[in-house]
Design a protein around this nucleic acid. Structure first.
Lengths: 217, 217
DNA sequence: ACCTGAACACCGTTCAAGT
DNA sequence: ACCTGAACACCGTTCAAGT
């Protein structure tokens, strides 16, 4: 413990766009996006809500920037990999980012992202497919299929009745409702609840990659 | 035109749960869920917002009921079909319902549905797969895969830059941002914009069904 | 240039009061 | 039993005022 470490001028660290976005990102990681408000975000930064508007045009601006940073956090696949492994790496990287920041799913549904990160991710996948030899039409089909699969799993994971730790009885009430009339749900309930979405995602990815390979000239 | 047709007592039709839910459903179809508020819904029904609470426990109660009615609107597949055609029919039926009521996607992301309709849909798919001869584990894998695919496409469709008719310049601004750095996006832009999601969904469904067929004992 | 207080037009929900 | 008005604790955002 030295004298100056804790006593720097951090109480008047100037407010910047960067600090606003990072605070919002951290807040969402901790409490979810639904809880994020301009007033709370201001409080987090020791400032009134209205000050934020000096560094950010909108709440929407903040949200769009948050989405983009999740995409930017996805590592680009190793260029030496063949197309199948490149798709696996890119896909798993995307799922990992969605799992680490589940609130981004909420945002993606209501606001299409056209910022740098989302576009770079899309370009990356299109390049892999085109380079593998797919036609333009099949490259587009494959992109849509891979994107749907990835975002679909992220949603399934986020809404699984076993995932909600805030309500540990959620599963029981779910099963009691379901089981009375639905024998297949009852029988498969253990699998549904203990679903390892990471593995499920990879299972589906293999099915898709196999199906795509069959369309290669 | 008869005397009484327009002059019935509809101005004091009693408020019921059914009328509240139906008004909410219609409002969302017209303006989207984000616009739906208890106050506006009350106004729609010629009543104060607080009256709604006599027939409905919550806004969440209304939203959950709305989700469920979308699931209930999906026709059960013809039991005489083989498992592949049954999955096709169930899948397309789900996509059609999501396309007709795009707001339901927003709701599904934030609230898992455990009401009758959603459970019945799930049971239906599990029954098809089990009856086809899949193991319990593969039945579960296949359900997750099909559900992810369907909901993923619904989101892709809802957020496609060409889909937003409220802003016809959305596509141009999207392309101008994207095209500067991303050659593959630029080249494929026409395909992306004019994407026929119905056909894309079916393309992916075939890939998945083929992949699943290979795992049948 | 940046921050603030007060204000505007909204939310969902509670509760005592009316009929 | 059902509906209402006023109120509470919130929103995002604008704008004139402060420094």
């Amino acid at each position: 413990m030295t004298y100056d470490v804790g006593m720097t001028t951090e109480t008047r660290t100037p407010l910047t766009r960067e600090r606003v976005i990072q605070a919002a990102f951290g807040f969402a990681d901790q409490h979810g996006v639904d809880e994020l408000s301009m007033r709370k975000l201001g409080a987090e930064l020791g400032v009134e809500a209205m000050s934020l508007y000096n560094h950010v045009t909108d709440k929407g601006d903040i949200l769009d920037e948050m989405i983009d940073r999740v995409f930017l956090s996805m590592p680009p696949p190793d260029p030496r990999l063949d197309w199948k492994d490149a798709l696996r790496q890119a896909g798993v990287g995307a799922m990992d980012a969605f799992t680490a920041h589940p609130w981004v799913i909420n945002l993606l549904v209501s606001r299409a992202s056209t910022r740098a990160g989302a576009l770079a991710y899309m370009e990356r996948i299109l390049a892999i497919l085109t380079h593998a030899g797919f036609s333009d039409a099949d490259t587009h089909h494959a992109w849509q299929l891979l994107a749907s699969h990835t975002i679909g799993y992220a949603i399934q994971q986020a809404t699984n009745p076993g995932t909600d730790d805030s309500d540990p009885t959620a599963f029981e009430t779910w099963l009691s409702r379901a089981g009375d009339i639905h024998p297949n749900i009852t029988r498969l309930a253990p699998l549904i609840i203990n679903c390892q979405f990471g593995r499920e995602y990879e299972f589906g990815l293999e099915v898709i990659i196999d199906g795509l390979a069959g369309r290669l000239p």
